[in-house]
Amino acid sequence: MSTVLAYLEDTYKLIDKAHVEYIANDERGYYCVLDSTVFYPQGGGQPSDVGTIEAKGVHLTIAFVSFVDGVARHYGDFSSVSLEKGEEVTLYVDEAPRMQNAKAHTAGHLMYTIVESLDKNLIAVKGYHFPDGSYVEFQGSPSFENTETFIAEINTKISEALNEATSVEASLIMPEELAARWSNIPNNLPLGKPLRVVTIGNLHPTPCGGTHLKSLQELKSVVVTKAKRQKGNLKISYKFE
């Protein structure tokens, strides 16, 4: 079986029902696997959601969620209640960290799509969208000569997008359609299979499985703070609120 990832449909959905598949443990501890989840599993540079699972009137704390072989593992102490396969439970995602992570991820996408649009020699290959120390790494040889000038140009474009309260949309498209809309896409995308992409206003769509805001209006600011070469890549750091 594989876990249905309900959070992909709505970042703002924090409560949902699901059914127990099984309880198991690994090196991290005990975890519960469900048939669906609104909890985001850590990955793609984004932290996992936290919250609780209510089962038989007992609230079980979920401190971490991971995604392994198509299954979401919800880690917590399940010793206080006996969970059987098929039993219905209620999931509660903590709102504050969910929305903070969505802000960080959306801010990162805004920044790196603008960077890619300004300098087509740069392709984003790694993101760290944690609230503390957020950054995106790019492959390629930058075409700009002055780093400070380039940072200023990025921040100007970011401010313009924020002032326009630009929409943020997630949708499923075919890789071939993505390639037609933007030439600099990863070369390892599976062909013939729908791909989830996030599009911010008129910027190019980018593949993503994370949680995002509905509009840039929910961001007060996004600012690139520095850019430096690191292990052959260009690391661009940003702050947001």
Rank of each mutant, 00 (worst) to 15 (best):
T3K: 05
T3L: 03
T3N: 06
A6Q: 13
L8H: 11
T11C: 10
Y12R: 06
K17C: 12
K17Q: 15
K17M: 11
H19R: 14
H19I: 10
V20E: 09
V20I: 11
E21F: 10
A24Y: 01
R28I: 15
R28A: 14
R28N: 15
Y30T: 15
F39K: 02
G44D: 01
V50Q: 13
V50I: 14
I53P: 01
A55R: 06
V58P: 02
F67S: 10
F67Q: 07
V68T: 10
D69P: 00
V71Q: 13
R73Y: 13
K85G: 09
E88S: 12
L91H: 00
L91S: 02
V93M: 04
V93Y: 03
N101A: 06
A107K: 01
M111E: 03
Y112C: 05
Y112M: 10
S117T: 12
L118F: 07
L118D: 07
N121E: 08
I123E: 14
G127L: 00
F130M: 08
S134W: 02
V136S: 00
F138P: 05
G140I: 00
E145Q: 14
T147I: 11
T147P: 02
T149M: 13
I151K: 09
I154T: 05
T156E: 13
T156Y: 13
K157M: 13
K157P: 03
A161Q: 14
A161T: 06
M174P: 08
L178M: 04
R181G: 11
W182I: 02
N188W: 09
P190W: 00
L191V: 11
G192F: 05
G192Y: 07
K193E: 14
L195I: 05
L195S: 04
G201T: 08
C208G: 04
C208R: 01
G210P: 00
Q217Y: 12
E218I: 07
K228D: 10
Q230E: 15
K235C: 04
F240C: 06
E241N: 15
